[in-house]
Amino acid sequence: MSSRNAICPNCGAEVRFRWSGAVQTTCEYCQSILVRNDLNLALVGKAADLPVDISPIQLGTEGIFSGKAFQVIGRIVYRYDLGTWNEWHLMFSDGSNGWLSDAQAEYAVSFANAFTSAPPAPGELARGMQMEQHRVLLTLTVITEALYETTEGELPFTSYDKEKCRFADFRTHDGRFATVDYSEEPPLLFLGQFVDFGSLRMKNLKEFEGWPTV
């Protein structure tokens, strides 16, 4: 994991890693999904076309959350019954990583966390049920069945071997939220909070023809 640069085994283009923890990336040129094995990159597949997507965020977008600068270095696109949403992979200035989710321009920032109590089993999920994690009382509001549509850029885990995913979204009375990702065994916990677009003070956003830039 010493080298920050590698060569795409498919097209020979240079692949540059921004984040030392990245396990998977996508070649910018040929969209090959590349998994990091020690020094080499293994070609494991080809990323699907990006969907019709008008997220203002893109790889390279920079912003600030909780006083810490971040850069967008990757994303997972999920498809669900209302279209697609993005989980943008963030690399923070202190080397930590997190996620910025963008679903129909509703934004939330979250971080992977360990469970402090056992999550409900996937078969037991019911709207309104509550759980406590890290001393936060969380209420289950939505259960989403999603498909991995495609990925882009650097990710902290491999996704090429995943197809379907069940998410349980929990909310609170104070703007925090949790997502339990049942695509892994044991499930993953993400804790975070909803954010206003403006509060992230993002730069290097996409521009929209006919709209004033923010």
Binding site: P56, A105, T172, F197, G198
Partner: peptide, 24 residues
């Protein structure tokens, strides 16, 4: 495109600017 969706509602010429809530 940056801020997403909001709504306006109107009844008898009374208007409301509606923001979806993420907090319960």
């Amino acid at each position: 495109p940056y801020h997403g969706f909001r709504y306006l509602s109107e009844y008898n010429n009374h208007w409301n600017f509606v923001t979806p809530l993420r907090t319960l």
